[in-house]
Computed example of a mutant assay.
Amino acid sequence: MNLMAIDIGGTTIKLAYWKNGQLTNEHAVDTPKDLESFYQVLTKEVNQAKTAINAKGVAISSPGAVDQKTGIIGGTSALPYIHNFKIQAELEKRFSLPVTLENDANCAALGELAAGSGQGCNSIAFFVIGTGIGGAMIMNQRIWHGAHLYGGEFGYMMIDNDQLSSLASPVASAKRYNERTVKNFTGKELFEAADQGDAIAEEERDKMLHSLAVAIFNIQHSFDPEKIVLGGGISNNPELLPLLNSVLAKIVKKVPAAIMPDLALCQLKSEANLRGAVANFEQQH
């Protein structure tokens, strides 16, 4: 089935056609500032897809806590105007097509399951490592939303009396480093400084890696997925997997009968949300 795929972001909205099992005509538009402009932009894009590929549905990746039973986007995001009303029904009325909605992290996980590092798996845990820590859990090739739509919200995990998002985010780690050194490093620069022997950078990087490794170990031994896939900007760093595996190996040695998690980096990068939105549509229809 040919589809219009949409990935709603706070700054840009990415769009693509799904035709013959491939994403084509990928492009982006600036995210509108208000709801009516949002409707106008998306309706124009969907109408073009109807003409160009005879699109039969619209697959959407969205920020926020998407409730697929009600078609309401709960929670908060950079786009307050999309929240807390039956937006799915409104979009279906405007597009005259079936619409599916799913959270963006969940879509990224579904994308990796369908065409990335999770191919062939029935279960994966997916980490989004960025400004905070987000994620998704997939069981039997389906998103596990949880009773309160908190499935995969790994950033809320408490480690050493602090939240994982505060401990394992490269942004938070760089902020701690900058407060200690009066510098203005990014997370990437923090890793580079640690490689060059900066003792404070090493300490902050090691704290980040240890916290993330503990969270991964705990998820492996509670959820027990076949793979744990790591996404976010830091997944482009070739050091990440070797460093994490080294820390994990030390933790595993301390626990009798523990297993070593199978880590992988995300493959789809910027296409993951669009591909996952399509996978979600195909699961529902």
Results as ranks from 00 to 15, higher is better:
Lys93His: 10
Arg94His: 08
Arg94Met: 06
Ser96Val: 14
Leu97Gly: 06
Pro98Glu: 04
Thr100Lys: 10
Glu102Tyr: 11
Glu102Val: 01
Asp104Ile: 04
Ala105Arg: 09
Asn106Trp: 03
Asn106Val: 03
Cys107Ile: 07
Cys107Phe: 12
Cys107Ala: 13
Ala108Pro: 05
Ala108Leu: 04
Ala109Cys: 11
Ala109Asn: 11
Leu110Ile: 08
Leu110Asp: 10
Ala114Asn: 07
Ala115Asp: 14
Ala115Ile: 00
Ala115Pro: 07
Gly116Gln: 01
Gly118Asn: 08
Gly118Met: 02
Gln119His: 03
Gly120Asn: 01
Asn122Leu: 02
Ser123Arg: 05
Ala125Trp: 01
Phe126Val: 10
Ile129Trp: 00
Gly130Ser: 10
Thr131Ala: 04
Thr131Tyr: 08
Ile133His: 02
Gly134Thr: 08
Ala136Met: 07
Ala136Ser: 15
Ile138Asn: 04
Met139Gln: 11
Asn140Ser: 08
Gln141His: 05
Gln141Trp: 01
Trp144Leu: 13
Gly146Arg: 09
Ala147Glu: 09
Tyr150His: 06
Gly152Lys: 03
Glu153Cys: 07
Gly155Gln: 07
Tyr156His: 14
Met157Asp: 09
Ile159Val: 13
Ile159Glu: 11
Ile159Gly: 11
Ile159Trp: 01
Asp160Glu: 15
Asp160Pro: 00
Asn161His: 14
Asn161Lys: 14
Asn161Arg: 15
Asn161Ser: 15
Asn161Gln: 15
Asp162Thr: 12
Asp162Lys: 13
Asp162Ser: 15
Gln163His: 12
Gln163Gly: 13
Leu164Thr: 14
Leu167Gly: 15
Leu167Ile: 14
Leu167Ala: 15
Leu167Phe: 12
Ala168Arg: 01
Ala168Lys: 12
Pro170Thr: 00
Pro170Ala: 08
Val171Pro: 07
Val171Phe: 12
Ser173Tyr: 06
Ala174Pro: 05
Ala174Asn: 06
